[in-house]
């Protein structure tokens, strides 16, 4: 799992400054990766199963509603990365923001993939986004 996240997050190059590499590889990448996956899954479940099935809301199943959740998820993913880096007290570096941006992109990706897999189970939004 560690090496999977390390592969994902080192696509933009190795961590900077290099002295923080062990902390990024051993702590920050796994934490950020798992949290982003979890949050994406949770938002997908809320959109398809809570709002559009259990609560039976009929007016929140369009593509633009889905997009609101998608963007919110990306913003949360961005914030997760920043908060994790700060809580681990790694040295200030622009790399932190590159990492957060990359994580936002992964947030979009996870949300999309979970949507494709899970949308069939929803009653009101089984065809959202397409």
């Amino acid at each position: 799992m560690k090496s999977f996240f390390r592969f994902l997050y080192e696509l933009i190059g190795s961590p900077q400054p290099p002295s923080e590499t062990p902390v990024y590889r051993e702590v920050i990448f796994p934490n950020v990766g798992l949290l982003t996956l979890g949050v994406s899954l949770a938002l997908v479940l809320i959109f398809y199963y809570l709002i559009n099935r259990a609560m039976g809301v009929a007016t929140f199943n369009k593509g633009r509603h889905w997009a609101i959740f998608l963007i919110a998820n990306a913003i949360i993913a961005f914030i997760i990365a920043i908060v994790q880096c700060n809580s681990q007290q790694v040295a200030e570096h622009s790399y932190i923001y590159w990492l957060a941006t990359l994580n936002a992109v992964y947030g979009l990706l996870w949300f999309f993939l979970f949507s494709v897999i899970l949308r069939k189970g929803s009653t009101n939004a089984s065809t959202t986004p397409f």
């Binding site: 190795s14 290099p18 002295s19 923080e20 590499t21 062990p22 902390v23 590889r25 051993e26 702590v27």
Partner: peptide, 30 residues
């Protein structure tokens, strides 16, 4: 983090724990 230059980090397995008072003697050079 003291006058360090270039791509290297602590090679110890425990480096990410950053315990207070820990000492390091392995240089992992990228």
């Amino acid at each position: 983090k003291y006058q360090n230059k270039g791509d290297w980090y602590y090679g110890e397995k425990t480096a990410s724990k950053r315990e207070a008072g820990a000492t390091y003697h392995t240089v992992a050079v990228q």
